[in-house]
């Protein structure tokens, strides 16, 4: 079984040393690959024997130009994610074919999810990323509010039979969590154990296959172009 964490955030200037440390710890924790929030190219030697994908999160003020921005950035990244911080953005992202996933991170993001958003996600087969980074990084009243907000949102998503992807949203190598520990952490967000296991053990594998196919296709195209030149 292969595990993936599709949400790692690294400072642009620190990408090479930080990423190699991330990879070392991710391997120890049992991950087969990571998706890194970056627009710069990942050094090739790091991608040998390990799946490293580039991920881009669109955080837009409104939904009006979402399709345009998604189409423009689709080719520049392996995984295109939209932050779902308003309801119109969530609904527009669900309808946009260029978007892979809608991310929910903070209290405001989870507050957006209601039965309409959940049903739209389910009908359009849009993946919902539940980032547990907030639970790890916050404490006290903020964390309890976040847990409450997550629990309500997850209830809607699970009832509508949406496909969930659980991520850690790690900003440092030691903020990564093992797949089983993320499943345990999902318990705090009231995510049922079977749903958490499915999202961690099988949904991430399916998404990885899709992204891998895209990456391979792009590499073949680039090789063809260079041969033609």
């Amino acid at each position: 079984m292969s595990f993936y964490d599709f949400h790692i955030r690294i400072k642009k200037s620190m990408i090479e040393p930080s990423l190699s440390r991330f990879c070392a710890i991710a391997k120890e924790l049992g991950y087969s690959g990571l998706a890194v929030e970056t627009s710069t190219l990942i050094p090739e030697y790091l991608c040998e024997n390990y799946h490293l994908y580039r991920r881009l999160t669109l955080s837009l003020p409104n939904a009006s130009r979402l399709k345009f921005h998604a189409k423009e950035r689709r080719k520049k990244t392996d995984l295109l994610v939209v932050q779902g911080h308003t309801k119109p953005i969530c609904l527009a992202a669900a309808a946009a074919s260029d978007v892979d996933m809608v991310m929910f991170y903070g209290i405001e993001d989870f507050g957006v999810i209601d039965s309409l958003v959940a049903r739209t996600f389910s009908n359009q087969e849009m993946l919902a990323e539940v980032c547990l980074g907030g639970l790890i990084q916050s404490s006290g009243p903020n964390r309890s509010r976040l847990m409450r907000s997550m629990a309500t949102a997850v209830e809607h998503l699970v009832r509508a039979n949406c496909t969930l992807i659980i991520t850690s949203g790690a900003t440092a190598p030691l903020e990564l969590r093992a797949p089983r520990d993320l499943v345990a952490l999902a318990f705090l967000a009231n995510i049922p154990e079977d749903v958490a296991k499915q999202s961690m053990y099988s949904n991430t594998g399916v998404l990885s296959e899709v992204v891998q196919r895209r990456v391979t296709g792009r590499q073949v195209k680039t090789k063809r172009r260079s041969n033609q030149d």
């Binding site: 639970l135 790890i136 345990a184 705090l188």
Partner: peptide, 11 residues
């Protein structure tokens, strides 16, 4: 499960 969740929140 409760203990694992608590351990996972320690940074």
């Amino acid at each position: 499960r409760e203990l694992r969740a608590a351990l996972a929140t320690i940074t």
